[in-house]
Simulated scan of single mutants.
Amino acid sequence: MSLRRRTLLSSGLAGLAPAFLSAPARAAGVSSGEIVLGTHLDLSGPAAITMPPIRNGLQMRVDEANEAGGIHGRKLRFVIEDNGSQPPQAVRVVDKLIRRDEVFALLCPFGSGPGVATVKKTVDAGVICFAPYGAAALIRKASGDSPLLFTANLHYDTTTAAGLKWTLAKLGSKKVGFIYQEGPFGDLVGKGVKEGLAAKGMALAAEAGYKVGDIDFSSQVARMRAAGVDLIVGATTTRETIAVAAEVKKLGWSGVNVLTASPGRAGTTLSIGKASVEGLYGIGGWRITPASAQGPALKRWSDSYRKRFNMEPDDVALVFYDYASWFMQGLQATGKDLTTAGLVKTLQASSFKGESSYETQRFKDNHVDPEWCRVEQVVDGQWLPRSEIIDPAKSSL
C-alpha cells in the first residue's frame, strides 16, 4: 500500500480532516501522463445480459476524453473486472484493482451485494468510489458515510414510496401485492412499498419472495391472484420484471396492473420483453428519449455509439455515459494538480444535467439530490410518462 493511502487511513477521512486535506499532492493512480480508473461489473453472472450498455457507456466517455488529449494532458487507463454479482468475487477483484492496478478511483461498480462487500475496502484504501450502481443507502452505510463515496443511484425506498403513492392515487388501486428479490434490494423496495401504503392507510394484501437467478415466477403470481390484488409492485430487475409481466398475461389475468421499481424500468425491458410488458408501469429514474424525439446533441451521441460498438444505443448506455461525464467534469475542474482531496471538494460543489437527466442534480451529503423520478407506462412498445417529474422529498400524494 502506498504512503499516501496509509496517510489517508490514519486520518480517518472524517469530515475531510486536516490530515486528509494536507496529504501529498500525488495520488495513487495519478502520474505525469496517466490517470488509472477501474470498475467491476457482472460480466458472467445473472445480470450479465444487461452489462454491455453499462460497459459501453463508460468506455465511450473514457475514450472520448483520451481522443481529446486526456484530462490536463493525462490519458485515462480504464481497468474493468468481472464480479459475477458475487460478493466474494468482487472482494478479490477490488483487492486486485487497489493493490496491483493502484486505481485512483472506481467508476460505477455494479451490484448491491458487491458494493456493500467492497466499498469499505475501497475507501479505506483512499480510493474514490463514484456512482456505484446498487442500493445506495446500504452502500453508504457500509462505507461509514465516507467522503470518498459519491452515490448517484436513487434510493429504492424513497422513489418506490413516491411512485406508489402516485399510482394509488391515480389508478385507484385497492389491494396491493409485492413480489421481491430476497436480500438488500427487496428489503429497500419493501420499505418504500410499506411507506407508500401507510400514507394511504393501507397494508399489503400479499407478498412473495424469489432468489437471485430464479426464472419461474408462476407461484409468486399465483399467490397474488389468490389474494385478489389489483396492483403488483415488483422489486425486480429486467429479467424478473419481464417474467412477472409475462406470467400475468399467460394467465389472462385482467384487472391487475404491474408496477416495477426503478431497476426494472429500462429500455432493455422493452427490447427483450416485447409484447409481454405492454401496459407495464415503472418508476423511472432517468429520461428515456425515443429516437424520433432526439435533439441534435443526442443524435450525435447515438450515431457515435453505433459507430464505436456496432450496436444500437439505449437509455442505460446513456445513463452510465452521463455518470462518467459528471466524473470527468470533476477531474477537469479540479485542475492539473490532481489530488483525492481536491477532487472530493470539486465533486461536492458540482452540479450536472446530462441527456438522460430529468432535471439538474447536485450532491447533498455526497448523494445525488434531488432524486427526480417519474411513473411511466409501456404503450405501443415505448415508455411514456404518466406522472409529472417527482421529487420524493416533497411528494405529498
Rank of each mutant, 00 (worst) to 15 (best):
L164W: 10
G163E: 02
L204I: 01
Y210K: 14
A25D: 13
D216I: 05
R300S: 15
V116N: 10
T346L: 11
E355H: 12
I390F: 04
G12F: 11
I128K: 09
P46V: 15
A206C: 11
R4D: 07
Q86C: 03
P132S: 06
G342K: 15
A68E: 14
E247Y: 13
V319R: 00
L164P: 13
R386S: 03
G201L: 01
R6Y: 03
A27N: 01
E278F: 14
L149T: 12
V316W: 05
P392R: 05
N153A: 14
F185I: 04
I128P: 03
A105L: 06
F20N: 09
I54Q: 07
E64K: 12
N257Q: 13
S357V: 10
K250G: 06
A291R: 13
R6H: 10
L384M: 15
D337W: 02
R223T: 15
G134A: 13
G29C: 12
R300V: 05
K250I: 00
K165I: 07
V62S: 06
K165T: 09
G144L: 05
V378C: 12
G38P: 06
I71C: 06
A243S: 14
F352C: 02
I215S: 14
S350N: 10
F20C: 11
S271D: 08
K307I: 08
G113Q: 05
F352T: 03
T159N: 04
I80M: 07
G264W: 00
G282E: 04
D315K: 04
R99H: 13
D216R: 02
V30Q: 01
S387R: 04
D157F: 03
M224E: 02
I242R: 04
L148C: 11
S173D: 00
R223H: 03
A245H: 02
K120M: 10
P290R: 12
G45C: 04
A23K: 04
G209R: 15
I49E: 05
K364T: 10
V256D: 03
V36Q: 04
Q86T: 02
S350I: 01
D380S: 15
F217R: 02
L397V: 15
T151R: 01
Q89S: 06
S85V: 00
A65L: 12
I71S: 06
R4E: 12
P370H: 09
L41A: 01
D303T: 09
L331E: 05
R223E: 01
